[in-house]
Amino acid sequence: MNEALWYTGRGAGLVTLVLLTVVVALGVASRAGRPLPGLPRFATPVLHRNASLLAVVLLGVHVGSLLFDPYAQLRLVDLMLPFAGAYRPLWLGLGTLAFDLVVALVITSLLRSRLGATAWRRIHWAAYAAWPLAVLHGLGTGTDAGTAWLRAVTAVCVLTVAMAGAYRLLLPDPATGPLGPPAPPGNRDPRLTPLTISGPPR
């Protein structure tokens, strides 16, 4: 039974890292100003949201199984309060910090329409702290941290987020705007007139 908890915790932790990587990459890429290849625009935030909720579930499995695992001797307070535990306090604390941030990110995102876009976005920048903390936590305290395959998975995760950052930062041309240069006037649909605050077109 103890073995099962330990293996579950390790596996769930790794899957959480992969899912968080997907979430961060989608979140970064969704700000690139153009849809991802092969996807409609609305699909990126929907995938981002669903992957993050899935990550929270697996994070719950990761934390829950290791809380009841007798080896690390975690107390309930160690799940929320970083660097207080007896077992590898630094590396475990990084994970606890990431856990706290993810919880805050999810709660504020679920309440986004009540928070307002500006406050929500400022809080959401904490994602850029949470993901590296999770990566370091996995490298520092994972039972499999020394193995080549875990390092390979971590490297792929870092590469994925780096590629998303490159997609966002390197591709757009600010001179032409997110959708490319505006169509010549002859190609525009004359029935479509931009709305103004003064009312409908005459």
Binding site: G177, P178, L179, P182, A183, R188, D189, L192, T193, P194, L195, I197, G199, P200, P201
Partner: peptide
């Protein structure tokens, strides 16, 4: 509908 910069356009022409 959508304009060239991604902004929405009302198909019924109302504000």
């Amino acid at each position: 509908a959508i304009d060239d910069w991604g902004y929405p356009l009302a198909r019924d022409g109302r504000p």
